[in-house]
């Protein structure tokens, strides 16, 4: 009798009775993930097949690792990996701290009006369509464009900025930071709002200045948020979308601009080579998965926060 009580079935049934409404609450979310994220994973099998739509996922012939081999053997393999890693690393290094700093700065602003105006201005670019942003960038970067006007004002000379492979990453990352800084700072601002003001008072009484308060009260308070965001970011590190790249690059900048996803777009989607693009996508996801676990381990070791 006792044994039965501790069995999983029994406990599950009991839990179900007790928390029925909670289970119902989580059900739609579960269904969403199963339908749109777990079920499609089954389609990843075509990475090992020579997929033809009319034959279907099951009917297409099995080719094993051929698609992967093709990618590894490609003369662009090393360059694609390098460009993807570097670009996303720069994006992380510059793009990750920027919204935190902005949030900390905004948090110190006393004038409510100024704060809300600044907030609105910084997060507005997030709502501009990518195609408009890249269109502006392309025009600004031309020899007769705004960026060159500024360079000339500062004593430089005109050049086509987007044709220079050395400048590509700077333009790409800087524009990403500009576009997302305000939007990404919202989550930190809300974390900051949750910090107990009594802590600040106590710190003040202990003689801590603004800087000490920041280091010893604010930072520890929002650290869990920062770490979770960082882990999520690292998990998606290799997930560079192709949209911005294909809108900004040209053959002259392939050297630094061509990344895995833009290559998949050119070779896989435009040529309708689904198996090949899925193989590359899967390869990318496996790396991402590894990165995620790695980041989580690291965070577990050096702080108390981790995803699992």
């Amino acid at each position: 009798m006792n044994k039965e009580k501790s069995s999983f079935r029994y406990r599950a049934a009991k839990d179900w009775k007790r928390n029925r409404s909670l289970y119902l609450l989580v059900l739609p979310v579960l269904i969403f993930y199963i339908m749109f994220h777990y079920k499609p994973m089954y389609g990843a099998i075509i990475a090992f097949k020579d997929y033809t739509p009319r034959l279907g996922v099951n009917g297409s012939p099995w080719v094993g690792l051929e698609n992967f081999n093709r990618f590894f053997k490609s003369i662009y393999f090393v360059r694609l990996i390098k460009n993807t890693i570097l670009l996303s690393l720069y994006n992380l290094i510059f793009g990750f701290p920027a919204p935190i700093i902005l949030a900390l700065l905004l948090n110190e602003v006393r004038s409510k009006k100024f704060k809300s105006v600044a907030q609105t201005i910084t997060y507005l670019p997030h709502f501009i369509s990518l195609i408009v942003v890249t269109g502006m960038l392309t025009n600004f970067a031309m020899t007769s464009g705004l960026f060159n006007d500024i360079i000339v004002m500062l004593g430089g000379s005109r050049s086509a900025l987007l044709q220079n492979p050395k400048l590509y990453r700077t333009i790409y990352v800087a524009s990403s930071v500009w576009q997302e800084i305000g939007w990404s700072s919202i989550i930190y601002l809300s974390a900051l709002a949750g910090v107990d003001s009594q802590l600040y008072e106590a710190a003040q009484i202990d003689g801590a200045g603004k800087w000490k308060q920041l280091l010893n009260v604010t930072m520890p308070a929002i650290a869990p948020t920062i770490i979770i965001m960082l882990i999520l970011k690292i998990g998606g590190l290799m997930n560079m979308g192709y949209e911005k790249t294909i809108l900004l690059y040209n053959p002259a900048t392939y050297d630094t601009a061509d990344i895995i996803s833009s290559y998949v777009y050119r070779v896989g989607l435009l040529e309708q080579d689904w198996s090949y693009s899925t193989a590359i996508g899967l390869f990318n996801s496996v790396i991402n998965f590894g990165l995620l676990i790695f980041a989580n381990r690291l965070s577990k070791r050096y702080s108390e926060t981790s995803l699992w």
């Binding site: 994220h37 994973m41 389609g43 990843a44 998990g235 998606g236 997930n239 996803s261 899925t278 996508g281």
Partner: peptide, 10 residues
């Protein structure tokens, strides 16, 4: 999210 890259295409 990590797997969505290949999921959405397939």
């Amino acid at each position: 999210m990590a797997l969505a890259g290949c999921g959405s295409k397939t």
